[in-house]
Structure formats: structure tokens, C-alpha cells
Design a protein around this nucleic acid. Structure first.
Length: 917
RNA sequence: GGGCGGUUAGCUCAGCGGGAGAGCAUCGGCCUUACAAGCCGGGGGUCACAGGUUCAAAUCCUGUACCGCCCACCA
């Protein structure tokens, strides 16, 4: 079959993807061999493919396809994450459009709705991944909430509980008043904001004429103040310590305490203490046994109930009850000002925590939650990275990893949402009656002292009172709890499956730095804990994809580039190649459209090279060679030996680059070889041999063209799977697929340093002649005569390769002289020791050529001066490596020689000009 | 407040101790029978700045400026 004149990616991509699927080529090969495994960072079921996914999965696919071709049994496990809060929010928004609230629906119906939605729309992203060409084994697809993984989650939870690494406690946690759930510390995004620092007068209880001034950015929380703190050594306040303050508004009497935490230099040096709504104040409260008043309800509105139950009945309770925290702030500042308690207000920069899922400002909130005692898990997780059992690439990220792990705080894993793994803990209704509070939504809330019964399956009765009425903890687990188990839960854990034995630990984890702590760190801790081994050997951390200006892509900025659009417009191969080429380590990717267009041209170039090869080997199949590899031929021509040598180099480079996760080097090496060596030079040179009357020479060239192209296709396949398959198949290779062909291996005997040197010289010569022609305005069609002077062996080489000079530089006639009189009036260039003359007589513009030569001489003189300065430096001669000195000396000689030759030519031109005048 | 990364050709970026590179853009010439999505040739950079180490610095060290991330409980 003939390759069409132009490549159209549109029809081809789906065709081959289906082909690979139907042949089951993504599954691990059914034969012995080393294994290579990866688990996909599971995208959120809510998600649609964005640039981050595209980059992430392209890189993983490159690794998998490479390893698969290279003889490994490759398993790449795909799947999705239930993404608790994110998904719940999406479905809630959809319901809201239909004017249905989650609470009105009830938990059971709501969770059903999410499942239905997940089944309908949740796989969209997987289809988009398929469009990207990923070679995941879809028969291994998993979802974090499918049965097996839910089993794994329960098992992990129970084991942690049994090992006393899990506990339930009332603590100040980060609360999102919109999602109405607790969040882990890392789920809070801190952002700088312009706020106000209010200085508020706190009068002494028994002498209202005297007051302290406290500074606060959150005056509304003074409703929950239970102390005022000063520094124990602060001379200004020695007499105040131990006295009582009567708080404005509430009139609550609170003590003045002394704690070294207080910064004397800040504000007035007195700090209001709100243990119920500030993490630092909480700590101080613990130290001093202060009351912790929770002044807000779950919506972060002032909770009048909280005061009433404390017996505080002032009218302020009614006035502020039910007010939103920001409204309350305004009202309270107003009241303070009216009542003369506000000393001043000044602008103040502060950092405000936001919910990573909905951007709502976080409220520190006192609630009972489940925590993982993380330090015992973190310790071995630090060790494995220190000892190199896990390599983090690029290495710089390990610093962040260590810093985070060493200062890690207990992990709050309970979430007050409905979509997720419900915590496998139950409470006995009769034993724990005092702790069961029925909420407005019909859900129980559990008091801080409730006694959980943690079990793998629903317990039949209470182990204490044998009561049969048990209720399950309403909370669900942090999404990242189940993703932390992903590398082994997807392989069947806790069952000891074949997959688990064969593919755990996985080989590599490819991910973005944004989830290094969220996910990677947790997987390492969980893997070590439950599997007793690292979850992966390498962690490759890639950059973030940004827009052309370097801005993070976001919907609100409207600068999002949809990968599907890009794939549609430029083709998936061009897109993948772009991502790989730009994935230099440790640097963000600014994606520019014209860059993708540039690589689309590369796809086109490859296509046309293939067409050329096909046209010249129409009857040739790989099979026709009887298994003989043309690259092994002992008797090859000059150009063949050269391109084969370059191929060997390229294969070695490609392998080294991909083995070292240097995807950009991988792409660029292949680009350079394919375009600028194979197409620019070898194909052009092959035309000579193809037209040869000697049938042996022509066939040898045909075979080699084909062999090199085949290897290019194989080398490029991991990054450009579609076009390489299309060409491979159309050229009549075996029908299975290029994706299961062996990846090229370079042979030492192919490398030929001498031929490469000779070719470099020949290329320089050709370029010099082309350059002279252009400079002299010699039309491309016009053939020229060239005279070469050289005393050394280069002359022989040029004589031998003269046909190439004819075809590549349009030289009609050449003379080779070892010395003697140089031609009069010729354009001149010098390559090494070889002088090149183009006697252009009528064509030559003497003036122009003299100007050109003078400029050239000037340039070389500058270079020579620099080299001579170096050589004149005794220290350089003494201290620099000998080969460096040697090189410099050679350069000097060459420059001198070149200058001499060019000057001579210049003189001749002058003579002619003199004659003419 | 700590930590990390960046600053190289008009743009997007490689290079990270020994002659400044690529792609795109630009200029000039080519419809040369694979490719005008192409071919051939050219121009363009005191490698942010200031010190230092070294025979030698875009490359290593220190500092400065600007940009961008991450972490952190100074109200």
C-alpha cells in the first residue's frame, strides 16, 4: 500500500488505538522476563483532561512503551479517584440547579446519585486518556471506591487502629464552612491578603479606667476569648499578670496570663487568647487549662447556642447569634468603636487559609475527628529516601520531602461529607447514648468521648453490653487515605495475588510536585507500613504546564488550553512530542502553540521521509531480507557507514536519555538525527547510490534506507505512537504492531569515528561551497567549477567523494592540487587545511568578495588573538589539561593557515582589480 | 520568616568549568523528480547585575535586583 501524499492524523489515531486494544497489546506480555510496572496517578472522576494530565500520562506512556519494546513485562494500571469533596461538590452543584439540596435528599439517595453520575460521566477522562494514546492495561482498571479497594481501605484502617496508630480526639482542625467538613493541614491553601489590625481596649475588671490594648485581625473572635496573654518578662505588664479583664461586649471575666509565646514587639505586646478559634491560642489554652469556646456553628455563623449553654445571656447573644463571621466582624468593630473600645485600626498584611476545593476561608474549629499518628509512619519513609531505596528525580525535591516529613503533624483523616469510604467504626447506642447527638439532617453527630468499635465488617453486637443496636460513624475518610494505598490496593491487596507478587514494588511513579505531600509521601508511608516495602523505586517529578506567559492555567483566568483541542488541531503525536521535548527537569513548561506547530512539521517530515523510502523500495518488506539485517553488512559505502555510525550513537543517546528520565534529550536527539542527519544528508546522499547503474550499490542503499527508517520508527514510537505505527504498517511490516517490536540496540561495530570525521569534513566543504555560491549570487541551478588545494589526506577524501560534491553542492568540475599557484580572482574559503576556490570570473563581484574576505579575516584574527593570548599565558600551559592545550595549539595553527590563505586570495583580487582599472 | 527555582538571540527554551546552541520568528535565494508544513544560505546574544574562586566562568561560590513557586501559628 502506498503512503498518501499527506499525513492526516484524524482517521489514523482511533484506528490504531482500537487495533492495539483488540489485540490485547497493553496487557503484560505472557512470557517470562523482567517486569516493569507503574500505577497511574488516578485522575478525579470529576475531571476532564487538562495539560497536567496530558504531560503526566505522555511521560508515563513513553516509559511503558519503551520498556515493553525492550523486553519487559509491562503493567500500567489505570483508574480513577473518587475525589470525595471535589466530586460531592460537583454533584451538589448539579442538584442545586434542579433546586434539590443534599440534605433534603438524604445521605442514601445522595450517595446513589453520585454513583449514578459516576457511572454516566465519570469515565469521560479515561476516554480522553485513550485519545492521548496511553497504553494502560484497561483490564486492570480500578476505582478507589470499587469493592476491592474499599476492602483494602477497611483493612488498612483496622490495622492502623490495632497498631494504635489511629485515634479519635477533639482538636482544633481546619474547617471549611462551605463544604462543612474538616480538612487536613495541607488541604489549606494560604494566601496573602490585605487585612486590618484592630487595636482594642480591654479594661481591667475591678478598675474599668485602666485597660490593656490587644491587637487583632479577627475582632469577632473576641466573643470566644478566655484570656489575655503577655510576655512573662515584659516590664510593662508585670503588675497585670494574674489580674482579671472584663471583655468588652460579652463582659466575660478572663485572666491575664504570662506566656513566652507572646511577641513583645508586636502591637502593644498583649495578646487576646481564643483557644476555640486559633491554633496558637489553642496551645496556650492547653498549657493554662483555659476554656475553649466554640463561637461558630458549622456554617461559621455566630452560634448563640454556644453561649446559652454556657449560661451567658446578655443581649449580645441575641444580637450576634446567627450572623455570618464577616458580618459579625463589621458589627462588632462598630460596637467597639461606639463604645470607645477601639483605639485604632491600621492596614495589615496577613495570610489567610482557604479550602483547596472551594476557596472558602478556613475556620479553625473545635470538633472530634480521627487522626493518624503519623510520626511512626514518617520515620521509615524518610529513611528509604535517605538510603536511596526510593530515588526522587530531580533530586532537589527530596529536600522538600525531608523538610515536610520531619515536621509532619498528625493527619486528620475524617471528613464530614457523604461521598467516600465511610469510616469502619461503630458505636453502641446503649453504651454511648450520651455521646449521640441527632443532627437536623437526621444524621448522628458523635461527641468527643464516644467509644468507637473498629471492625473490618459490621459488628453484630456491642462487645461490652452485647447490645445489638449499633450505628456507624457518619464520617468518611480523606480521599488521600485510599489513594495512599493505590500502588498495592490496585494489585489486589490485602489478597496475596499473583499481580502483587509480580508487580510490587512498582518501578516508577511519575507525578507532579503539587501532590508530592498529598499523595507520594502517603503512598510511601502506607506502602512501607502495609507491604513492608517501598511502593516504587523511582519517583519522577515533572513540572507544571503553564501558559505562554508562564501563568498557571486556570478556568478563572481563561487561559486554559484544552489538550483535546491541541490534539485535534496538530495531531496527538505532535502534541506528545512537544510535551516530551519541553519536559526539561526542574523547570515549568510554558506551552506555546507555535512550538507544537513546529513539531507537527516534524511529523510531516518523518512522513515524507517514509514516502521517499517507500518509493525507492516499493517491493521491499522486512521479510524479503530473510531476517538479514542490512545494518550488519560488512560491505557498505561511505554514506552508509556514516549514517549507521550516527544511528548507533543516536540509539545509545536515546536509551540513556529515557533511562535517566531526560525526556527532552530523548526527543531532541531523535529530532536532530531524523531531520538533520537522516533527511538532510543521508537521504540526499542516497539518491546518488539509488541511481547507480551498479545494481548492488543501489540495492544496498535501498536496504539501508529502509533499515534506518525502521529504527527511527522504533525509536520514535514511544513518543509518537500513531504515526510510527501507520508508517510501519503501511510499509508492509508484520501486521501485529510496532509497539511489540524490539527496541533498537546499538552495536559497537557500527560506530566509525573515522568515517564520522571524514563526513564532518565533507559536510563542512559542501556548506562552504554552498555558502560561496550564495555570497557570490551564483544561481542554485548553475553549476560551478571548484579547485581544492591541500597537502594532506583530505584531498584524497574529496577526490574519492567527488560525486557527492557534484550532487550536494552542484559542482560540475573539480580539480585537486597539492600546491602551486592559486587561481586568480576566485571566491575563497578555507576548511581546516583545505583551501577552496571557485573561479567565478564573470560572476564575481570583486568588490563584494574582497569585503567579504576582509570581514572573514577580521573574524578569524580576533579568534586567533584570543587563542594566542591563552597560549602566551604560562599558567595556562602549565595548569590546563594537556589535551586542552594541544587543542588550542592546533586551533592557532589552523587560524594562521586560514588567514594566510584568505589574505593571499585577497591580494589576488586586488591584482585583478588593479589590472581592470 | 525559612527553603527552592528562574533571569541565555525578537519569542519559547536547551546547555551548567575549556571554541555561545535549538525551535519558532526574521532577512536573502530556491517550485532541486520525499517534503513550500519544504530546501539552501545569512543576520541577530558584553549568557540579569556586582564581586570572588580558577590558567580558564553562561557554567562553581557570595551578594544584589526582579520574577515565580513551596513551607511556616507572630496576633
Amino acid at each position: 500500500m502506498q503512503l498518501p501524499k499527506t499525513y492526516s492524523h484524524k482517521d489514523i489515531e482511533t484506528k490504531w488505538y482500537n487495533h492495539w486494544m483488540s489485540r490485547g497489546l497493553f496487557a503484560p506480555a505472557d512470557r517470562p522476563g523482567p517486569s516493569f510496572s507503574m500505577v497511574i496517578p488516578p485522575p478525579n472522576v470529576t475531571g476532564s483532561l487538562h495539560m497536567g494530565h496530558a504531560l503526566n500520562n505522555t511521560l508515563q506512556d513513553i516509559l511503558c512503551r519503551y520498556k515493553r519494546m525492550d523486553g519487559y513485562r509491562v503493567l500500567w494500571v489505570p483508574g480513577t479517584d473518587h475525589a470525595g469533596i471535589a466530586t460531592q461538590n460537583v454533584v451538589e452543584r448539579q442538584l442545586a440547579q434542579k433546586k434539590i439540596s443534599r440534605t433534603a435528599l438524604g445521605r442514601k439517595k445522595f450517595v446513589e446519585t453520585v454513583w449514578n453520575w459516576k457511572r454516566e460521566a465519570g469515565d469521560a477522562i479515561l476516554h480522553q486518556l485513550k485519545a492521548l494514546g496511553v497504553s494502560c492495561d484497561w483490564s486492570h482498571e480500578r476505582f478507589t471506591m470499587d469493592e476491592g479497594l474499599s476492602h483494602a481501605v477497611r483493612e488498612a484502617f483496622v490495622q492502623l487502629w490495632e497498631d494504635r496508630l489511629l485515634y479519635r480526639a477533639q482538636r482544633l482542625i481546619n474547617w471549611c464552612p462551605r463544604c462543612k467538613t474538616a480538612l487536613a493541614d495541607i488541604e489549606v491553601v494560604h494566601e496573602d491578603a490585605d487585612g486590618t489590625l484592630w487595636h482594642v481596649r480591654y479594661p481591667l475588671a475591678d478598675n474599668p479606667a485602666q485597660h490593656l490594648v490587644v491587637a487583632t485581625t479577627r475582632p469577632e473572635t473576641m466573643l470566644g476569648d478566655t484570656a489575655v496573654a503577655v510576655h512573662p518578662e515584659d516590664e510593662r505588664y508585670q503588675s497585670w499578670i494574674g489580674k482579671k479583664i472584663r471583655l468588652p461586649i460579652t463582659g466575660r471575666i478572663v485572666p491575664v496570663i504570662a506566656d513566652a509565646y507572646v511577641d513583645r514587639a508586636f502591637g502593644s505586646g498583649a495578646l487576646k487568647i481564643t483557644p476555640g478559634h486559633d491554633f496558637n491560642d489553642f496551645e496556650i489554652g492547653e498549657r493554662f487549662g483555659l476554656d475553649k469556646i466554640s463561637i461558630f456553628d458549622a456554617d461559621a455563623r455566630i452560634d448563640a447556642n454556644a453561649f446559652l449553654t454556657r449560661g451567658e445571656t446578655g443581649d449580645w447573644v441575641a444580637r450576634y447569634g446567627g450572623k455570618d463571621r464577616f458580618e459579625a466582624r463589621k458589627l462588632i468593630v462598630g460596637e467597639l468603636e461606639r463604645e470607645g473600645f477601639l483605639e485604632k485600626a491600621e492596614p495589615h498584611k496577613l495570610s489567610v487559609g482557604h479550602c483547596y476545593r472551594c476557596q472558602t476561608i478556613i475556620e479553625p474549629y473545635l470538633t472530634p475527628q480521627w487522626f493518624v499518628d503519623i510520626k511512626p509512619l514518617a520515620k521509615p519513609a524518610i529513611t528509604v529516601v535517605q538510603e536511596g531505596k526510593i530515588r526522587i528525580i530531580p533530586e532537589g525535591w527530596s529536600n522538600s520531602y525531608f523538610a515536610w516529613m520531619e515536621n509532619i503533624k498528625d493527619w486528620c483523616v475524617s471528613r464530614q461529607i457523604w461521598w467516600g469510604h465511610q469510616i469502619p467504626a461503630w458505636y453502641c447506642v446503649s453504651c454511648d447514648r450520651a455521646n449521640l447527638i441527632e443532627g437536623a439532617d437526621g444524621e448522628y453527630r458523635l461527641g468527643k468521648a464516644a467509644k468507637p468499635i473498629v471492625a473490618r465488617e459490621v459488628p453484630s453486637h456491642c462487645p461490652i453490653c452485647r447490645g445489638r443496636e449499633l450505628i456507624q460513624d457518619p464520617d468518611v475518610l480523606d480521599t488521600w487515605f485510599s489513594s495512599g494505598l493505590w500502588p498495592f490496593s490496585t494489585l489486589g491487596w490485602p489478597e496475596q495475588t499473583e499481580d502483587l507478587k509480580t508487580f510490587y514494588p512498582t518501578s516508577a511513579m511519575v507525578t507532579g510536585f503539587d501532590i508530592l505531600f498529598f499523595w507520594v509521601a502517603r503512598m510511601i508511608m502506607m506502602g512501607l507500613k502495609f507491604m513492608g516495602d517501598v511502593p516504587f523505586h523511582d519517583v519522577y517529578i515533572h513540572a507544571l504546564v503553564r501558559d505562554e506567559q508562564g501563568q498557571k492555567m486556570s478556568k478563572s483566568k481563561g487561559n486554559v488550553i484544552d489538550p483535546l483541542d491541541v490534539m485535534h488541531q496538530y495531531g496527538t503525536d505532535a502534541f506528545r512530542f512537544t510535551l516530551a521535548a519541553m519536559a526539561a527537569m526542574g523547570r515549568d513548561i510554558k506551552l506555546a502553540a507555535d512550538r507544537i506547530a513546529g513539531y507537527q512539521n516534524f511529523v510531516n517530515k518523518l512522513w515524507n521521509a517514509a514516502r521517499f523510502v517507500q518509493m525507492n523500495s516499493s517491493s521491499l518488506n522486512s521479510a524479503d531480507l530473510d531476517g538479514r539485517n542490512p545494518l550488519q553488512d560488512r560491505d557498505l559505502g561511505f554514506a552508509e557507514r556514516w549514517i549507521r555510525s550516527r544511528l548507533a550513537f543516536t540509539i545509545a543517546e536515546a536509551r540513556a536519555a529515557i533511562d535517566g528520565y531526560r525526556f527532552n534529550d530523548y526527543a531532541n536527539t531523535l529530532y536532530q538525527f531524523t531531520w538533520h542527519e537522516f533527511c538532510d544528508w543521508y537521504i540526499e546522499m542516497s539518491k546518488l547510490a539509488l541511481n547507480s547503474t551498479d545494481g548492488v550499490i543501489a540495492e544496498r542503499s535501498r536496504n539501508l534506507l529502509r533499515a534506518i527508517l525502521d529504527d527511527i520508527l522504533l525509536l520514535l514510537h514511544p513518543v509518537m505512537p500513531f504515526v510510527t505505527e501507520e508508517i510501519w504498517q503501511t510499509l508492509g511490516n508484520q501486521r501485529e504492531s510496532i509497539m511489540v517490536q524490539p527496541y533498537p540496540v546499538p552495536e559497537e561495530s557500527w560506530s566509525d569515528a573515522q568515517v564520522e570525521r571524514q563526513m564532518t569534513f565533507l559536510m563542512d566543504t559542501v556548506r562552504a561551497i554552498r555558502n560561496l555560491r550564495t555570497e557570490m549570487n551564483c544561481p542554485p541551478g548553475k553549476e560551478v567549477k571548484v579547485i581544492f588545494y591541500d597537502a594532506g589526506e583530505e584531498l584524497g577524501l574529496l577526490r574519492e567523494q567527488e560525486p557527492y560534491l557534484r550532487s550536494l553542492a552542484r559542482v560540475s568540475e573539480s580539480e585537486f592540487r597539492e600546491g602551486g599557484e592559486r587561481p586568480k580572482g576566485a571566491a575563497t574559503a578555507v576548511i581546516g587545511t583545505t583551501e577552496i576556490y571557485l573561479p567565478l570570473d564573470d560572476l564575481i563581484d570583486l568588490h563584494e568578495e574582497r569585503a567579504r574576505l576582509s570581514k572573514e579575516v577580521g573574524k578569524i584574527e580576533d579568534e586567533l588573538a584570543r587563542v594566542q593570548k591563552k597560549l602566551g599565558n604560562a599558567d595556562f600551559i602549565a595548569k590546563a589539561k594537556t589535551d586542552v592545550v594541544h587543542k588550542e595549539r592546533e586551533k592557532a595553527t589552523q587560524f594562521e593557515e586560514k588567514i594566510r590563505a584568505l589574505r593571499a586570495s585577497l591580494d589576488k583580487l586586488q591584482e585583478i582589480q588593479a589590472e581592470r582599472n
